[in-house]
Nucleic acid binder design. Structure first.
Length: 575
RNA sequence: UGUCCGAUGGUGUAAUGGCAGCACAGGAGAUUUUGGUUCUCUUAGUCUAGGUUCGAAUCCUGGUCGGACAACCA
């Protein structure tokens, strides 16, 4: 497949079995080696359908599906829908779409915690029968007060030692709907002075008279997360239940509930990893919701949002996100990933696949004085220099062009090799031109028009085509250009850690006022046929992606990410 | 104040008692009809104090710093 010797050697050493494992892979390989759960690997991705998925979830998705793929296992999609007051069908569909778009499949294994309400209820009765659970009639406030604090033990509920019969009767009446919301709860009887507060007789069921998006009015009691999650894992045959670090403290409870019901050799195991944090980004669902609700962004899929749908609309590719997840690795220490690593993964993919086009975002008129008035030439241009199979297109060229305002200076600094009086540049895919003079607006002093001549032999394939010219600039033919709306996005926050708030401020104070700038651009005609099936690179500018707001004859493009720009960096450092 | 978890260049992540490596970011250069891409070189790291050991990022002890935990949320 590859007869380059050096390359195949490198490949081989890369695939050596000694390649290092992350801590999750180590645990899994150890479990497989020990024949745990019959050597099976079965993971799950368990979103709560109460919001949209973001890049942090993408890490979890890549981990869960990736690990299963690597060890020939399976991954279930399971909606953790145990709280009907917060959850909605709307989110279910969005979540499914996002996971599919990322490139993962749960086949037919789409489950809901609510599928297990009957089984969960049966097990709850068993716990009551075993004297391990009781109905508590106290108010939420009272229960909370009795729970003690982090440093002081709690005290036992006066209802803690009700008889099994009384508990069973009460629990059945809870289920039957005889009590209003909050009248009583079912609690596990564990230890009110446990140093881990979650073990101080945690609540298993509460009364909520609200219709559920799947079970409708069948239930008016709903299980809490801790009581539902491990049991759901057990029902589904999950082997490795991977979650984020904040659930670490829940693990003893996860294990306690399993202890009460597991009768088999098989048993799922919870393992925690550190969630993703990104510089200049917030990941909290609550805060993202606030951005949407209060109109700081235009919706969950606003291209500035770190949501999967936002990134998709912005022009991110699934490949770039998967590669990113691979690069950041996984561990148990808190981390903040530099957003430039995400952008690197994005450019890396886009560079390979993006269709090149010419567009002028900030136009300046250029006239080629020795080019005939009425002549149009069609110049062949490679669609993608990284991929010859992408083919070519022809770009119209004529006497009057638009060029980028940045590509001309009256008094250029050192190392500026674009256009200035007397200089020569190459027009990309076209001719070498020389600048002779320019015209300014007498009112404003702004440059209006640049006058050049072209070297007719300097076209690709021409006699002087290979002359060394330092600068190449992009252009569009004025009379053939089409207009498009361009949305220039920048980071949403001006502070690397927007959640690190000063006294009396909130993350809202750190919003970047320039996170969106809308302009009009002149584009080569081929962009009239732009489609969301393609990603585009406007040469020398950046990557762009067609927005659904586009109208017939008027495309709208989102700037996905700019090209790396070592010139602006260099000229800034000079200052 | 208690319990649990964690600590390796600026940011991530390897090294599983034996040469501290890789990626991003930063810097310098080469190539280039994109100041893009690609390529080369380069700056920079084991929280701290002790102990075990021929040998410690790794094992032990103390400290320091950071995180999690007191919803009828997940």
């Amino acid at each position: 497949m590859n007869d380059n010797n050096e390359n195949s050697i490198r490949e081989d050493s890369f695939n050596e079995p000694s390649a290092s494992l992350n801590f999750l892979e180590e645990i899994i390989e150890e479990d497989i080696k020990n024949g745990k759960n019959g050597g099976r690997v079965h993971t799950r991705f368990p979103p709560e359908p109460n919001g949209y998925l973001h890049i942090g979830h993408a890490k979890s998705i890549c981990l869960n599906f990736g690990l299963a793929q690597k060890y020939n296992g399976l991954t279930n999609l399971r909606f953790d829908d145990t709280n009907p007051t917060k959850e909605d069908e709307e989110y279910v569909d969005a979540i499914k779409e996002d996971i599919k778009w990322l490139g993962f499949s749960w086949d037919d294994r789409e489950y809901y915690a609510s599928d297990y309400f009957d089984q969960l209820y049966q097990w709850a009765e068993k716990l009551i029968l075993d004297g391990k659970a009781y109905v508590d009639d106290q108010s939420a406030e009272e229960i909370s007060r009795q729970r003690g604090t982090i440093t002081t033990p709690g005290i036992e509920s006066p209802y803690r030692n009700r008889s099994v019969e009384e508990n069973l009767g009460l629990f059945r009446r809870m289920r039957a709907g005889e009590f209003p919301d909050g009248y009583c709860v079912l609690r596990a009887k564990i230890n009110m002075s446990h140093p881990n507060m979650l073990m101080r007789d945690p609540i298993m069921y509460r009364i909520i008279h609200t219709a559920h998006h799947r079970t409708g009015d069948k239930w008016c009691i709903y299980p809490m997360y801790d009581y539902a999650h491990g049991q759901s894992d057990y029902i589904e045959g999950i082997t490795h239940s991977i979650c984020t670090l904040e659930f670490e403290i829940h693990r003893p409870l996860y294990d306690w509930f399993l202890d009460q019901i597991v009768t088999t050799e098989y048993r799922p195991k919870q393992i925690e990893f550190a969630r993703l944090n990104l510089t200049y980004t917030i990941m909290s669902k609550r805060k993202l919701l606030q951005l949407v609700k209060d109109g700081y962004v235009k919706g969950w899929d606003d291209p500035r949002m770190p949501t999967i749908c936002g990134l998709r609309r912005r022009g991110y590719t699934p490949t770039s996100i998967r590669n990113f997840a691979e690069k950041i690795g996984v561990a148990r220490r808190d981390n903040v990933i530099d957003v430039s690593l995400l952008e690197f993964s994005l450019r890396e993919d886009l560079n390979k696949i993006a269709q090149r086009r010419l567009a002028v975002l900030n136009p300046l008129q250029l006239i080629i004085e020795n080019f005939p008035e009425d002549k149009t030439e069609f110049l062949p241009a490679a669609n993608n220099p990284e991929d010859t199979k992408a083919g070519i297109r022809k770009i119209p060229f004529s006497r009057q062009l638009w060029i980028e305002r940045d590509d001309f200076m009256i008094n250029p600094p050192k190392k500026y090799y674009r256009l200035y009086p007397g200089s020569e540049v190459r027009l990309k895919y076209g001719y070498i031109i020389k600048c002779h003079r320019y015209e300014t607006d007498p009112q404003t002093g702004e440059v209006k028009t640049i006058y050049c001549t072209y070297d007719p032999e300097s076209k690709t394939g021409g006699a002087t085509a290979n002359r060394k010219i330092k600068g190449t600039i992009h252009w569009v033919s004025k009379k053939h250009a089409i207009q498009a709306e361009i949305r220039l996005y920048d980071r949403l926050f001006i502070k690397p850690d927007p959640e690190d708030v000063a006294e009396g401020e909130s993350f809202i104070n750190y919003l970047n006022p320039n996170s969106l700038k809308i302009i009009n651009a002149w584009c080569e005609p081929a962009l009239m046929e732009a489609t969301p099936a393609e990603h585009y690179q406007f040469e020398r500018i950046g990557y762009f992606y067609l927005d659904p707001d586009s109208r017939p004859g008027y495309p709208v493009f989102n700037r996905t990410v700019s090209l790396k720009d070592s010139w602006s960096k260099m000229s800034q450092n000079e200052e």
